[in-house]
Design a protein around this nucleic acid. Structure first.
Length: 822
RNA sequence: GCCGCGGUGGCGGAAUAGGCAGACGCAGCAGACUCAAAAUCUGCCGAUGGUAACAUCGUGGGGGUUCGAUUCCCUUCCGCGGCACCA
């Protein structure tokens, strides 16, 4: 007997697969397509267990679909631009390009050692000129269609990364990447107009039946749609109208004051030259020096300053004092709020503090008309009071009538507001795709001509240590002729957010070698959308929202037919050790390399899939890995023993007792197929295969005399075939040992025999008052009445039931009988 | 505060349409093989009581619907995640 030498086997088959391009996608195929994609790698250095898990899940699905007869596209690549490469360069002096490519080589080696079925011919890396040329090209298409624009704004600035950040990259006021405080800075920056797609990004979530509810809710919250009205208020002795957004136009009669964000553009003019100017400026200055997190915390007490001015309530005609206050945000809605203290807790707190009139205009339906709000704002709907012609109406109806009235008077209109902000994409960093823009003193902002792409990132640059991007001081890069007038001009030195690169990589994979376009529409339309996407839930908002935006924008630019990029999404849980996420700083990292060395790739893949369902976090266990390894050894020995049995003389084909094993074999095929296909529960699929192996051992040992060797061989073949997507190397080896000439991975996925799943006899549970008391075997096709009489005749049941009255008997055929007694 | 997810043996987890709770694996205990160990194999393995057959309890807590609830409903506690002065 040979030992299971995983090292030799794995190396052997990996080499064969690579040489034969075993998992290359067929270009012209009659088979239906299946696009399987896992979120690509960030080349940080080494792969970790999270990668192993993510890619093992994807590999099972890819291999399964391939066996199921699909033409599978299963590519991989690297999200290779980004700050860590630059930081490493600053610290160690190596160029980001060198650092990145080195890491990629290392990580590719690891992926290959794990035996993933990638189509390596399609590999892309976002830092390759061939790739980012097209990132720039897409930027130009966006620019030309008004989706990319530059504007001056108060932006998030990370002092440690020394760059601006998108809203999505600020988590609790801290930088998503380095956890340092994020400041606000007034800067001119490049944006993508994702807000144009807010409603479609929100509405189309409904189409994504294959996405986890959780992710859809997170995106929904992030987009943050509110319906209400946009209302204009006349300001006394001021030309402009003050516009506010409110979700409660029904409370308009109760609006007793007005609050502006301190940054609101009218504030300076409203107080200019008045006695209020100094106080207001002091207040504004104070807030400027507060972090957003402090300022916007619900804990922070509401504070404000009266501006000495008034505006007019368009319906009640009442004068409303105008304040500025810390609790109004400049960048939500219009940066101004009509305050209704009776029906908004924040406004009520503020009104009490500054002694402003509180007027209740809606009463709960169980209260009388003299209902008055005291300590707690009434935020629900109810009956209108103190609201002129609307009194007595339901507030939900008055809502619409008031909006109509405002429209009539041209003082307001129905409006929808989103929380989502435009995507700030420029970064003051070096290692990214340069923004293809030129600044000319005469012509202004001029896009680089398409035929002049790529704007190449210089590779050999000097890092001055900490601080500004080396592009700024690189004359060769910066100095350029204006594409329009030809005079000397300056190149944009900002690069694009790396999330731009990853917003379209799944499209490049469909046509990765295309030299004249990012991808051909025809080919992309053939493959898109991605049928199954897998990645960590940490990308639920950032990457997944951006990729959806890109897909829709590119569809509108007629580059693509798909409306959504990913039909089905699986968000896998984290790999934990001692209850915490594995991280270098905690020192609880388990290295895949060591495990591959010690147990082999098949064992690790098997363990990571067996230990928990994919969505759940997985607690790392070395003992569990040993268990998986033990199982593979058990399979190995079983196959060897069956092979030698087959060769020996005393092989029989007695079929008298083959039915239960036949059932088990076919039932296992059914369970494994459904677990992979319908539920993604690889843990239960594997346990089903384990059960089959246990059963085969038992059959072999207990019934050696009247054993059906052919059936045993069938069982072994089934085991190997079903295990193939999970443990591709050992199964390939065993498959050949069993005498097959072709690869187990080229096999058609097994079908089960329905007839074998029909049992002659079934076990029926006998319950008394819902509690199990006995089990009996009965013929499968027995009628309800017959089952009932057999159950009542059972000696055990009779002894329990004796002396009691049978109230009712419930018979569930093939399952149970429940006898209700008193 | 709002929204979402989860809570099952010593541990990871299973129970797929309301029908035997604890599949499969890990750990543990006992035994076989062995000079011995490893490997392998066999048996036991939720709690309590009982030599045992068996009985009672048991899926975070309380209540409900049902012949029957881990599963459905209400309520409550705990853990995790998202959003959060969003007008």
């Amino acid at each position: 007997m040979n030992k299971y030498n995983f090292k030799e086997i794995e190396e052997k088959w990996q080499k064969v697969w690579l040489e034969n391009s075993a998992f290359s996608t067929e270009e012209d195929s009659e088979k239906p397509k299946f696009y399987m994609l896992e979120m690509f790698l960030y080349p940080s250095g080494k792969i970790h267990m999270g990668h192993v898990r993510n890619y093992s899940i994807g590999d099972v699905v890819a291999r399964f679909k391939r066996m199921k007869g699909f033409n599978v596209l299963h590519p991989t690549g690297a999200d290779a631009f980004g700050l860590p490469a630059e930081n490493a360069a600053i610290q160690h002096g190596a160029s980001p390009d060198f650092w990145t490519r080195n890491n990629m080589t290392e990580m590719k080696k690891q992926l290959k050692a794990l035996g993933f079925s990638y189509d390596w011919d399609r590999e892309v890396s976002t830092c390759d000129v061939d790739y980012y040329k097209w990132t720039q090209w897409i930027f130009l298409q966006f620019y030309n269609s008004g989706l990319a624009y530059k504007k001056e704004s108060r932006v998030n600035w990370c002092t440690s990364c020394e760059t601006v950040l998108a809203n999505e990259q600020v988590v609790n006021g801290l930088c998503e990447r380095c956890d340092s405080q994020v400041e606000k800075k007034e800067l001119s920056q490049w944006y993508f107009k994702i807000t144009k797609y807010a409603s479609r990004l929100l509405d189309d979530l409904e189409l994504l039946d294959g996405w986890p509810e959780k992710v859809k809710i997170m995106q929904k919250n992030w987009i943050g749609r509110s319906e209400g009205a946009d209302i204009g208020f006349k300001i006394e002795n001021f030309d402009e109208r003050l516009r506010v957004f409110t979700t409660r136009p029904d409370t308009l009669f109760g609006a007793t004051y007005m609050v502006l964000a301190p940054e609101h553009p009218y504030v300076k003019d409203l107080v200019l030259g008045t006695e209020y100017e100094e106080v207001a400026n002091k207040f504004i200055h104070k807030l400027e020096h507060m972090s957003d997190i402090d300022r916007t915390s619900t804990e922070t007490e509401k504070e404000g300053v009266f501006l000495g001015r008034y505006c007019i309530n368009p319906l009640s005609g009442e004068k409303m004092p105008i304040f500025i206050a810390n609790y109004v945000l400049a960048d939500y809605g219009t940066g101004a709020v009509m305050a209704v203290p009776a029906h908004d807790q924040r406004d009520l707190d503020f009104a009490r503090k500054y002694d402003i009139k509180v007027l209740s205009v809606i009463r709960p339906s169980d209260q009388s008309n003299d209902f008055v709000v005291t300590d707690e704002a009434f935020v629900g709907s109810g009956i209108m009071i103190n609201s002129g012609e609307y009194n007595g109406k339901l507030s939900k109806i008055a809502f619409h009538e008031i909006v109509s009235k405002l429209e009539e008077k041209e003082a307001g209109k129905k409006s929808i507001n989103y929380r989502l902000r435009d995507w700030l994409i420029s970064r003051q960093r070096y290692w990214g795709a340069p923004i293809p823009i030129v600044y000319c003193d005469d012509c202004g902002i001029i896009p680089v001509k398409e035929e002049d792409l790529p704007v190449e990132l210089p590779i050999n640059v000097e890092f001055s240590g900490k601080g500004s991007s080396p592009l700024e001081s690189n004359k060769e890069f910066v100095e350029v002729d204006c594409p329009k007038c030809g005079k000397s001009a300056r190149r944009e030195t900002d690069t694009m957010d790396t999330f731009v690169d990853s917003s379209w990589y799944f499209l490049r994979f469909t046509d990765s070698k295309n030299a004249s376009l990012p991808f051909s529409k025809e080919i992309a339309d053939k493959w898109m959308p991605v049928d199954q996407y897998i990645g960590g839930v940490e990308h639920a908002i950032l990457h997944l929202l951006y990729a959806r935006f890109f897909t829709k924008a590119m569809k509108d630019l007629n580059l693509l037919e798909a409306n959504e990029p990913f039909t089905n999404l699986l968000t896998q849980g984290m790999v934990l050790k001692d209850g915490a996420k594995m991280s270098k700083s905690k020192g609880n990292v388990v290295s895949p390399d060591e495990l591959i060395y010690k147990y082999g790739a098949d064992t690790i893949r098997l363990f990571v899939l067996f230990a928990a369902p994919p969505e759940r976090d997985l607690e790392w266990s070395e003992l569990g890995v040993e268990g998986a390894h033990r199982f593979l050894n058990r399979v190995w020995r079983l196959v060897e023993e069956v092979i030698s049995l087959r060769k020996s003389e005393n092989c029989t084909s007695d079929i008298s007792n083959s039915k239960p094993l036949k059932y088990k074999i076919n039932n296992t095929i059914k369970r494994v197929t459904e677990d992979i296909e319908k539920r993604f529960n690889f843990n239960t699929a594997i346990s089903a295969i384990m059960e089959l192996v246990n059963e085969l051992y038992k059959y072999k040992e207990n019934d050696e005399k009247k054993m059906n060797t052919e059936l045993l061989v069938e069982g072994v073949h089934t085991t190997v075939a079903l295990l193939a997507p999970f443990a591709p190397h050992i199964t390939e080896e065993l498959w050949r040992m069993l005498g097959n000439d072709s690869s187990v991975h080229d096999l058609d996925w097994l079908n089960y025999d329905e007839k074998a799943l029909v049992k002659d006899e079934v076990e029926i549970v006998l319950q008394v008052n819902g509690k199990s008391k006995a089990r009996i075997m009965t013929p499968t096709d027995l009628g309800v009445n017959e089952i009932e009489s057999i159950a009542l005749a059972d000696t055990k049941i009779r002894s329990i039931v004796e002396g009691k009255t049978i109230v009712k008997v419930i018979v569930v055929p093939k399952k149970l009988v429940n006898i209700v007694v008193k």
